[in-house]
Amino acid sequence: LSSDKLTDEEWEEIEDTLLAADVGVTDTTEIVDRLRERVKVLGSRTSSQVRALLQEELTTALGVEADRNLNTVTEDGPATVMVVGVNGAGKTTTCGKIARVLIADGNTVVMGAADTFRAAAADQLETWGTRVGAKVVRSHEGADPASVAFDAVKTAKDDQADVVLVDTAGRLQNKVGLMDELGKVKRVVEKHGPVCETLLVLDATTGQNGLQQAKVFTEVCDVTGVILTKLDGTAKGGIVIAVQRQLGVPVKLIGLGEGPDDLAPFEVESFVDALISVDEQ
């Protein structure tokens, strides 16, 4: 027995770290198996060397080549960005935060309140609009979300705005009717031209269901990027590894709080560091 070899307990610890970060059984097993294979090929390794290799594996798993820029450049007309996701994930807040960044960069932004269902959803978006200086297009409660979205893009065109953000109602991905509705919102918006980005807002506290969310939302409206919210809490958001590995959808931005400036680019290195750091209680 050589002391520089990892014990079964140490391997289990690595596995547990990933599982406790919501990476999930399948992806954890595959990542740890690859790691074991590499350790075998490279010869005996100390814990800290294995840790460095693990960091590499996780970085690879998160997609090295992934384009994490928000695509808001168009030949002509406003860039359309749709924001989708399950209930309470942080869509409306994120719309406000994205508008803030875009406006700070000199863009004019219109937001469309295509959540006509939840109580006071349009008011909430309007408050954000006022906060960050974006015009909000809204209708009455119960209005057709597709036509609100259509009108928002139209307003953005008329105003020669640079970007239009369409906030949609939260919906659980197993609700077929609501998912069909979302598909329709997108198709109607596309009458004005292609949608630049469809962003799935994923709450970092979400467990394995996050993968199912990403699958179904991608099927219905072709998600181009994930925004991982609520990373200011204790959750690690490891499910995005499965989302990247199995669906190839990259995380683009992260949410770090409830304020207008609590949005940041997704940085693989710090995400991986946080994921495998053992919390000091």
Binding site: L19, G88, T206, G207, G210, G233, T234, A235
Partner: peptide, 15 residues
Amino acid sequence: IDAMIGQDAVTTAEA
């Protein structure tokens, strides 16, 4: 608590 929550349930519930 949201039924979709993952491993963070323990830390959150304790808090």
